[in-house]
């Protein structure tokens, strides 16, 4: 079995690195060798954030070579567009439809893409677009968005969905036990939304 390459992308402060950490722990739990890398430092300052996760029998270099990403997880839709060129042929993307415009866009210096999901679909097959913000808000808090996204990718991984779910719940049990249950539900909501989206895409084809 070869190395699986997952690229997570989003914006500083969104919790991309925590999501990557949970995926990494799930890979460890299933006995893989794991490397996870990101460039921090400016990460909290609203800039571009990516995290590279590689796992398999033996991982050498920490960063994913260009064009070898198996799965792109986009926590913001324009960021998914920015990084979709890293996917290998046949690679898939699971993308939150959340739009976050940076100050340089609000100041009128640059334009935000009109239809980022459409542009993504024009470039790659296998795009799963998830309205993670609405799903999270329906469960009570925007802060559940990342857990929704982890649920949405759970069936796109060579890791059992239950293994990943257990990591998410265990993290909250350890730190904020009151939030463990709702995060479990957010995970399930994301997973169900991904199933629905996949079914709709299949029907559309």
């Amino acid at each position: 079995m070869s190395v699986t390459n997952i690229l997570l992308c989003g914006i500083g402060g969104q919790g991309v690195l925590t999501a990557a950490e949970l995926l990494a722990q799930a890979a460890v739990a299933e006995g893989h060798d794991v490397k996870k890398t990101e460039v921090a430092g400016m990460a909290q300052r609203g800039g571009v954030v990516t995290s590279h996760l590689r796992f398999g029998p033996r991982v050498l270099a920490p960063a994913i070579p260009p064009g070898e990403t198996d799965l792109l997880i986009g926590f913001e839709v324009a960021e998914a567009l920015r990084w979709c060129g890293e996917l290998r042929a046949g690679g898939r993307a699971v993308v939150s439809t959340l739009r976050v415009k940076p100050p340089v866009v609000h100041q009128g210096l640059f334009a935000y893409p009109e239809d980022p999901v459409g542009q993504l679909r024009g470039r790659i097959k296998g795009v799963l677009a998830i309205d993670a913000r609405t799903l999270a808000e329906d469960l009570g808090s925007m802060k559940l968005m990342n857990t929704v996204m982890l649920g949405a990718v759970a069936d796109d991984l060579p890791i059992a969905a239950e293994t990943l779910r257990a990591q998410v719940v265990a993290r909250f049990q350890a730190r904020k036990p009151a939030l463990a249950e709702v995060n479990g539900r957010a995970f399930d909501a994301g997973r169900a939304a991904a199933h629905r989206a996949r079914a709709e895409d299949a029907a559309a084809e």
């Binding site: 300052r45 800039g47 567009l81």
Partner: peptide, 8 residues
Amino acid sequence: VFPRPPTM
């Protein structure tokens, strides 16, 4: 895609 520099 537009740049997204770190900001305050």
